Computed example of a mutant assay.
Amino acid sequence: MDSRKLIKSFIYASHGILHVIKSEQNFRFHLLAAIVVIIASITTGLSKTEWIIIIMLICGMFMVELLNASIERVVDLASPDYHELALQAKDLAAGACLIYAICSAVVGLIIFIPKWWGILF
Rank of each mutant, 00 (worst) to 15 (best):
N68M: 02
E50A: 14
I52K: 12
A105H: 03
L18S: 06
I113G: 04
A89L: 15
A105R: 02
F62E: 06
A93M: 11
G16T: 00
G118I: 08
G16P: 01
L18V: 11
I58H: 09
D81M: 11
I54L: 04
I38Q: 01
G16R: 12
L92I: 13
A13T: 08
W117I: 10
S9K: 12
A105G: 00
I119H: 13
T44W: 02
F112N: 03
L32M: 01
I42C: 03
A105D: 00
I17Y: 03
S9N: 09
I99Q: 09
S47R: 09
G16I: 01
S79Y: 03
H19S: 12
L98G: 01
T44F: 10
A78Q: 14
I54H: 06
E24S: 14
V64H: 02
L120F: 07
I102E: 04
W51K: 12
L6D: 04
L109R: 02
Y12I: 07
D91C: 05
H19V: 06
A69M: 14
A94Q: 12
P114A: 06
L32A: 04
F121E: 06
N26K: 15
L67F: 04
S79I: 03
S41T: 11
L98S: 07
W117E: 07
I39P: 00
H19Q: 08
S14F: 12
H15M: 00
L31H: 03
E84L: 14
V64D: 06
E50K: 04
F62C: 02
D81P: 01
F62R: 09
I11A: 10
L31G: 03
S104T: 15
L77A: 12
C97D: 13
L67Y: 03
V64G: 04
I17R: 07
R73P: 00
I35M: 11
H15D: 06
L6R: 09
C97Y: 08
P80N: 15
V106W: 03
I71V: 12
F112C: 05
I11G: 00
I102N: 02
I113S: 10
S47W: 13
S23M: 15
T43G: 15
C97M: 13
A33W: 09
F121W: 04
V107C: 06
D91N: 14
H30A: 12
T43S: 06
L98Y: 01
P114N: 06
Q88T: 15
L6H: 01
K48E: 14
V37M: 05
V20I: 15
F27C: 01
S47C: 14
S104Q: 13
I38T: 08
A89S: 13
C59A: 11
L87D: 14
R73C: 02
F62L: 07
M56Q: 02
S23Y: 15
I11D: 10
T49L: 12
Y12P: 00
H30P: 09
I7P: 00
Q25I: 15
L32S: 01
I102W: 10
M61D: 10
V107G: 05
I21R: 07
I113R: 04
P114K: 07
I55V: 11
A33Q: 13
C97F: 10
I7N: 00
L77N: 09
Q88P: 05
K48A: 15
